[in-house]
Design a protein around this nucleic acid. Structure first.
Lengths: 100, 100
DNA sequence: CCAGCATATGCCCTTGCAGTTATATAGCTG
DNA sequence: CAGCTATATAACTGCAAGGGCATATGCTGG
């Protein structure tokens, strides 16, 4: 099972998850929305499936892909210790930009 | 400025951030901790710097790298609409049960 | 000013991955 | 069954990225 981090590095895959947020989708719908080829979509879906981020429901010759958000908890957990930091720390960035 | 998502896809870079969580570090320290070559470390640090995730403070021939967590807000924001699916799972279940 | 240390950059090699087209598989319909 | 539709897999290609070594840069101590 690959890491959610690397799986989500692909914009297309984040896009898919965003689409599944509203409701399950067919491969064809996703293909249209992404603007890539159908095999391309199927490959992304495979990666998402192997990461446990989507599940498939067969419906005749169609496949309904639906979201399974649970692996995202790993991301959320990693993020936790950083979360307190982003209040008002623009000063550091300014220093950096000025030094270049 | 690259996306934090792809920057964090690299385990070594997440590792660096985790180390910087406690205190600023020198390149040498990070190199030892990561078990890769010094140039390798410097390259990861460059990526992190360009993504705004670290800042450098010069101190003679040394460089103190310190964490700048603000770009992680993008990750956090993306995660937000998914969070209810696991965190508020029981709340949702309760609401559903009550409405029946 | 020279030797040595800390860090950055250039170059090369290799691997992995996203994207494509072509084809396979399986269900549906007439 | 024939042919169409929906999806998956295979084979190939191009490119980016990570890793290493060698070298440049810049500071420091003697």
């Amino acid at each position: 099972m690959p890491e959610p981090f690397s799986v989500l590095a692909e914009p297309a895959r984040r896009r898919i998850l965003d689409l599944l947020l509203k409701r399950p989708r067919l491969v064809g719908e996703l293909t249209d929305a992404l603007g890539i080829s159908q095999p391309g979509t199927s490959k992304h879906l495979r990666v998402l499936r192997e990461a446990g981020l989507v599940t498939v429901r067969r419906d005749g010759q169609r496949r309904w892909y639906e979201l399974r958000a649970e692996p995202l908890t790993e991301l959320d957990a990693w993020l936790t210790p950083y979360r307190w930091m982003w209040a008002d720390r623009f000063d550091a960035l300014e220093r950096q930009l000025e030094s270049e």
